[in-house]
Design a protein around this nucleic acid. Sequence first.
RNA 1: GUGGGUGUAGCUCAGCAGGUUAGAGCACUUGGUUGUGGCCCAAGAGGUCGGGGGUUCGAGUCCCCUCACUCACCCCA
Length: 419
Amino acid sequence: MADKYRSIRGMADILPGEAKLWQRVEAAARRVFELYGFREIRVPLLEPTELFARSIGETTDIVEKEMYTFSVGTSGPYTLRPEATAGVVRSYIQHRLHLDPAARKLYTLGPMFRHERPQKGRYRQFHQVNAEMFGYPGPRADGELIVMLMSLLGELEVPDARLHLNTLGCPECRPDFKEELARFLKARAKELCKDCRRRAKSNPLRVFDCKKETCQAILKGAPTVLDMMCPGCRDHFEGVKSILEKAGIGYRLDPYLVRGLDYYTRTAFEVKTDMLGAQDALGGGGRYDLLVKELGGPSTPAVGFALGVERLILLLKKAVKEEAPGLSVYLALLGDDAWDAGFELARGLRREGIDCEVPLDARSLKSQLRYADKLGARYVFILGEEELSRGAGTLKEMATGLQEDVRVEDLVDFIKKRL
RNA sequence: GUGGGUGUAGCUCAGCAGGUUAGAGCACUUGGUUGUGGCCCAAGAGGUCGGGGGUUCGAGUCCCCUCACUCACCCCA
């Protein structure tokens, strides 16, 4: 209990029993994304602090108090990425990827870092699956991206996930809406809770996040973006909705949906679940048409999303049982000569792509078989001095207990046929 | 940063109003079968009772502090 060293708070080990599930999630993401023509991009975990401050927003919680920032000697400050989009956009600009038509749809997977107080479904090092699309201004991009996201969740058989959809407007109409909303909130300020009064001033859109019933009741009468969007945003939003409807994807119109990062415009969406307690956002994303230019690139529209892998895994664990280990062949070897022969045999099996293990310490046959059983071995090939002298060992099928003699030189072919 | 809950073996937990060498189940090792797994039986190994201080003749048990884990607020993946 009083371990000398423990993992840092909020940073979890992924143990072998769980790693298979992670691999499944990652493999499914890669497979689905590549079906849609997305290509992988890998960017550093460390970026200049300035990049995140600019893109995520100086006044967001992430930038104000959650980033792991440090300098080494005279270089820095650097920040461990709290999300993936900023780095991908930086790379997109730096390598002039707008000139490469094959680099408009990008995905990336990996760890993110935020110094928050950990709780269920929230860690300081956590993982996201990320997809971004550059250069497509129209609603088809948003539509296809969401369809892809939902089909990934479907492929993984995520038990409970609903899509929430909203639009945040654009530089044309958002200011009008914000102004209107500010007016509304100011008029009703006395009835709102203190948090909401604070938010009403700092970031009015956030008041919609308030969970207090009294505030929600007041907000029922608040103006929404949906009422106030400009024709361009309206067309775009209608376009996105119609694509989702044609694709048979259900969604909930959620005018209160606000994204936490500053760079979003127009489409915003989030996938929520009821099965994870307070951390109900499985993933989210939206359109960010201004960010590329903001970060110094050519004006380029973009849409993207991030999925929280830990949350996905938590959800999948409710449905799936932990996978037992498995092994095709275990070579039970007795004596040095048998071990030498077995070691060669194992190399032969592995050359054929058959996974197998040999004992690495001298143990009784009984304990070797017990071990093979624990590893989930399908077959055990028993080879001792006596078998060796006649050139054939005993092949045992663990599930049935049936045994038969197999010549050493025939083993590889024999097993190949059986598997 | 703010609250609540919990800390006894690798895991899940007992431990009766403070009283002698701290327990169980599972897991692990070995044996019961001169060389045959799972089931069963037996034995063994494994604990500074999160840490520190205090009260007491005596503390896993009571008090204080601290740390860790966890859930929630905030915010988000």
